[in-house]
Design a protein around this nucleic acid. Structure first.
Lengths: 209, 209, 209, 209
DNA sequence: AATGAATGAGGCTTCATTCAT
DNA sequence: GATGAATGAAGCCTCATTCAT
């Protein structure tokens, strides 16, 4: 769990019955759909409830306020993303660093690209102040996984792992986001991904492997 | 001017007299201050006017809606940033590509870092829907400048310039933003900048120079 | 029972079994505690049920609405208060009127003072519309008892009993409440009580004894 | 001014133009009417604005929240009441104490009786928590005036003025309120007022004049 | 008989925008 | 031109009450 969620943003109660769990899922789904369709500024509690097919009251039984809802949606999204990154990191333990990074880029890129509109919508919604806690929790988690992976590289040369990881992570995550913001797609996006791999590999090589 | 601004977002009239221009500046300044202090969601027209020392009515003389204000603030900011990038590009015409990229990173990084809170605040405020036009206009403009610069590189090898530029730009701009989001500062930020230079140089080298 | 309670406010069913009665008591207790802690405006049915350790559903089994609950709590309180007043009145039958009034003041004062926060909380909660019925029922009952007592005074001079009783009752009950509102306590409250006795005795004396 | 109003309850801005002042008056008037008609629990900001013939927005320009409105209404009422009490106190300086008290009772009683429904409605609305500040401010002010008056009594015998004032004030104010709560009126109320005068005079006499 | 999830009307409040002065 | 009081739609959220389990 990413949740080092600030108290104020915690969900009110975890869904315990099957029905409740379905309700919460419907709320999540509705939120994402609306975020995709109209953006954060048009997202109202009423509309979310309506689309989720529940009453506002019910929604407020699970989320103490709108913020908490947005927070939870992003939390779930980042949780899944982090899981995938971690899985990739585990999978590539002991391989050459270059291959690791390529795998990492692939995983991250594909996950983000699967539902590009959702990705875009959430990128935008996270901006809201307190969600920074989320971002940093995500960073901590992925950094750890990636650092561990790189440390196990078959061609590990002992150069500054902290700095390397940070650089790679910042570049990869940053580039992907920027690519989304610029609306790259299809050929262009694909080329960029390849170039990113080349660039990261070059970086690792240059660094003395 | 970056403006391929959607008609609706254009300021109602361009400030032409000295006094008017001073008013607009005060409004810009007030907006940025409030954005830094409380974020977009707390930004109200009344508060901006108050802090700018003008009446709401007057403010509406210059900006037909709140959106237009936010838009204009970001436009101005991106304009200046683009100018700096262009200047750097002009300045380094004909030099080795590696030096060009290093200069580019320096310029971009320093401009963003000068007033980190303003940078952060604006990064957040751009999220608003229609501002995408801005971002893409900025992209077009900087891409052109950078492409031109790279084309003049003393060690230009004729490899795909479009793709290279796109990659470098996306990586650099993306990494900087991500670094901001992660709250890097001081030593860490400085190291990242150096690594970014190394990475980009490695990329260019690998590409057949 | 005081109840000339408007039909709508009557509890749905009178608690008859031991367990039910315990439930009702728990609900009363919870209500009073919350009234004391947060006041009427913060009192919600959910909170009462929670604190009483029953479900809302159960609570609604005993009280058809929130009003009925508030009503019942006050009814019980006033019932007990009236009982004490009546007991005092019975006890002092046939004594000098001055002593009667002193005893009455003592009883009333002490009962109110025993749990000052409860008293205060209930004074506040009675404000609700329909509870006026309660107040007047209480008035009728105590007036009767006091009138009867005074009629039996050993120094009864036959002066207008109705008027005398009314005056004494209004003054005593009113003064006590006012004293509460002003937040008198300790020394001050004690002095006031003594003065009140003096005043009432003076009134009776002056009236031709 | 009674206002030692807790910051949170202060009006947002004092009406400065003629029009604004009329607006505020209309709001006051509307509030009182609704309080009389339906009681505090039915008082909604929308209804007040509607009846006052202004928009909610306007109302909120003068009162930061509902509480502040209720507060202000009571403040104004108590201000006027206090003024009358003070006037009476000034007027009767140097007279016999018994006459003073009779005058005081008359003033207080008549003021309260002028618009009995308003009196009753406000008695009820003051109960709301934070308005206690008001009550105590009123108490301080009237206590001072009455103490000063009694000190000037032509038959002042130097007995404990603090205690005497407190007793008289608590009894008079308390009895009047209680009388309202019991719904006395006409003959009954008039008799009570006379009896109250008799009682207070008796109290003063007994005390050694 | 008890439970507590679900409901949804309706309350409070904000704030972009207008327009009479 | 500038002002800022007034507007009112619309957002967020609560809570008394119901009813399927």
């Amino acid at each position: 769990m990413i949740s080092s969620a600030p108290q104020a943003l915690k969900p009110r109660k975890r869904p315990q019955q099957r029905r409740a769990s379905a309700t919460v899922d419907a709320i999540f789904e509705a939120t994402i759909q609306l975020l995709v369709k109209d953006g954060l500024s048009q997202l109202t509690t009423t509309r979310v409830a309506e689309r989720a097919g529940v009453s506002v009251g019910t929604m407020y039984q699970y989320f103490p306020h709108k913020q908490a809802l947005i927070y939870a949606v992003n939390e779930r999204y980042l949780d899944r993303l982090a899981e995938r990154v971690e899985a990739t990191c585990r999978e590539w333990q002991g391989n050459p660093a270059g291959d690791m990074v390529e795998a990492l880029i692939d995983t991250y890129w594909h996950t983000k690209t699967e539902k590009p509109d959702v990705t875009r919508a959430l990128y935008r919604s996270v901006v809201e102040m307190d969600n920074e806690a989320l971002i940093s929790a995500f960073a901590v988690r992925t950094d750890a996984a990636i650092t561990a992976m790189l440390a196990s590289a078959s061609d590990n040369d002992g150069s500054d792992a902290r700095s390397n990881t940070r650089t790679l992570v910042t570049v990869i995550f940053g580039a992907v986001r920027n690519s989304f913001e610029r609306g790259h797609s299809g050929e262009v996006a694909e080329d960029l991904r390849r170039q990113l791999v080349i660039m990261c590999r070059a970086y690792l090589d240059r660094h003395g492997r």
